[in-house]
Design a protein around this nucleic acid. Structure first.
Lengths: 157, 157
DNA sequence: GGGGGCGGCGCAATATTATTGCGTGGGAGG
DNA sequence: CCTCCCACGCAATAATATTGCGCCGCCCCC
């Protein structure tokens, strides 16, 4: 399957903003019968277009007040070190996102921690403990204006 | 309400990884009856600890292959310009996350676009069109290793 | 232009799940 | 030791999801 129409778009849009909407309501919103709607949703899931469903938690209320972006530089580049670093970074719970990036840094990671002490432990004990990493530059989120908004489906043809 | 026990933790953890799990199954996973479990979930929602539910879409499959992080610098700082800038940034669909940050930049935004042409339009026509913004430095995600992983609940007391 | 085949739809029956009232037990505080 | 209160489980009811089925419209091939 590879073709998606405006109804699929509408379904995705809706599910992005309310991932737990009842299928009955979703169907009504996109002007389909519940059964047809459900079949489309299942197909979108099967196709991998819908990667999953997540409850979004409030970081501040959880006590994970501090969001930090950390740019990492790697000393020697090789396929093996890259893979190993990725594996380690991925396994650190505090790291909620991680990208290989262009520019002066090699990795850009986003971490959620409780406070500066936790941040220090994360950086010193976990990240800088990775041998190949030679430099880290941290940027603190003072305030989050917008978090993981819906993807801009309207921008697609 | 302000106290959360390990059962709540387990519920949140589970809902983070599967936001659409049936209450029956969630209840079994956390060793509660469905009714008790549902009541806890409702309470967590009511409390705002659960901010919402989202379907997570596959950016690549959607054709939004390009993730860009853009650091913005603001010329004159004032309460009004800050508020106005935030309002504009928030309203741009391609911008999926936006933070006020420490360091050499003032804002860090994450954008999802289809390709370089779309990126250029976003940057030139929308972001740099904001008067107070004097500089933008872009970092491209070459590959995403980990996306919006679950928050590290295990790290909380 | 006229079949024929196919895909997707709605309907309806059935299975699952969510939701609410109610009675009970266990722990905290007096 | 007693009492109160909270959170639980149970059970009945309401809502929702799921599947089979027949139908309709579109596209392709003749």
């Amino acid at each position: 399957m590879a073709a998606y129409d405006s109804t699929d778009r509408a379904i995705l849009d809706r599910l992005q903003s309310d991932g737990r909407i009842a299928n009955v309501d979703l169907a009504e919103a996109v002007a389909l019968s519940p059964s047809a709607c459900l079949r489309r949703v299942r197909a979108l899931e099967q196709d991998g277009l819908i990667a999953g469903y997540r409850a979004e938690l409030d970081r501040a209320r959880l006590g994970l007040d501090l969001t930090v972006f950390i740019e990492l530089r790697v000393g020697e580049h090789s396929r093996e070190t890259a893979a190993r670093i990725e594996a380690v970074l991925t396994g650190i719970p505090e790291i909620v996102a991680c990208h290989v990036v262009s520019g002066s840094a090699d990795f850009l990671v986003e971490a959620a921690v409780a406070n500066l002490a936790a941040y220090e432990r994360l950086l010193i004990d976990q990240i800088l403990a990775i041998p190949a990493i030679v430099d880290a530059r941290s940027t603190f989120a003072i305030r989050t204006v917008k978090t993981r908004g819906p993807l801009p489906l309207a921008q697609l043809r």
